[in-house]
């Protein structure tokens, strides 16, 4: 019996001759807040895609709550308690904001939490209010602003009632006040015992949010540790600022 929630070990992913991830390890404990940083193209999104099953890693293993999920299709992993938001929002465009949340509530959350069908709407409204979309529940999702689109993306991931939520650049292009809103939201998940992996370019947010930060550069994890240590790590500074 392990007390690890997610255990990524030795994961390697190649696209043709290009190695996007090489021998990457990462562990997440229940309720932990992890920051995942790295320059563009360093393999952050590829790692998320491998963890969630959108891509299949050639080598290494991915265990979630002690179970090897490496060969399982995405929807199974989501039903076990993984959830992700997409870097480029992918709303269900023909549905209202509220209906967008109904999908994960019906298909994922109900698998591991007892939610009666009649409570689905209340539950969805509750999450929408948390992210500040409560008054837009009936709006069509395709008409939302970029900011609201990102909030919806996060809300939909939360609606899967995950044990681990992976937020893929939820804050790109947001104003400082909006960044703080979303940070508060993600920090609130801690109280519910939800672990979070935050992938972000907004350094201030990552450093403020994370208990532990991992750094990917060119598909390899070059450093991992608490935020202060990472900020002062010469390898990380070099990778970010160039030589």
């Amino acid at each position: 019996m392990s007390d690890l929630l997610l255990e990524v070990s030795g994961v390697t992913k190649r696209f043709g001759g290009f190695t996007a991830l090489e021998d990457v390890d990462l562990v997440v404990r229940p309720g932990e807040r992890i920051g995942l940083i790295g320059p563009n193209g360093s393999g952050k999104s590829t790692l998320v895609n491998c963890i969630c099953g959108a891509l299949h890693n050639e080598a290494g293993s991915i265990r979630f709550m002690g179970e090897d999920i490496g060969r399982q299709p995405t929807h199974r992993r989501i039903r076990l308690g993984l959830a992700r938001s997409f870097q480029i929002p992918k709303p269900f465009a023909s549905m209202s904001v509220l209906d967008n949340l109904r999908v994960p509530l019906l298909y994922a959350a109900r698998r591991h939490e007892k939610i009666a069908k009649s409570q689905i709407t209340d539950e969805a409204m509750h999450i929408l209010q948390q992210v500040g979309l409560g008054d837009k529940a009936q709006a069509m999702s395709r008409g939302l602003t970029q900011v609201d689109m990102r909030k919806l993306e996060l809300a939909r991931a939360m609606a899967a009632k995950p044990r681990l939520l992976i937020s893929d650049e939820a804050m790109a292009g947001l104003s400082p006040a909006e960044v703080d809103d979303i940070l508060a939201l993600l920090q609130g998940l801690k109280q519910q015992g939800v672990a979070v992996i935050m992938i972000e370019h907004v350094m201030r947010a990552v450093m403020k949010f994370s208990e532990r930060v991992a750094v990917l550069v060119a598909g390899r994890k070059i450093a991992e540790g608490d935020p202060q240590a990472i900020a002062g790590n010469p390898d990380v500074v070099k990778a970010y600022l160039g030589e």
């Binding site: 997409f86 992918k90 465009a93 999908v103 994960p104 298909y107 959350a109 698998r111 899967a160």
Partner: peptide, 10 residues
């Protein structure tokens, strides 16, 4: 609407 998002919603 979006197959990948659907799969990622379970």
């Amino acid at each position: 609407d979006d197959e990948l998002a659907a799969e990622s919603a379970g």
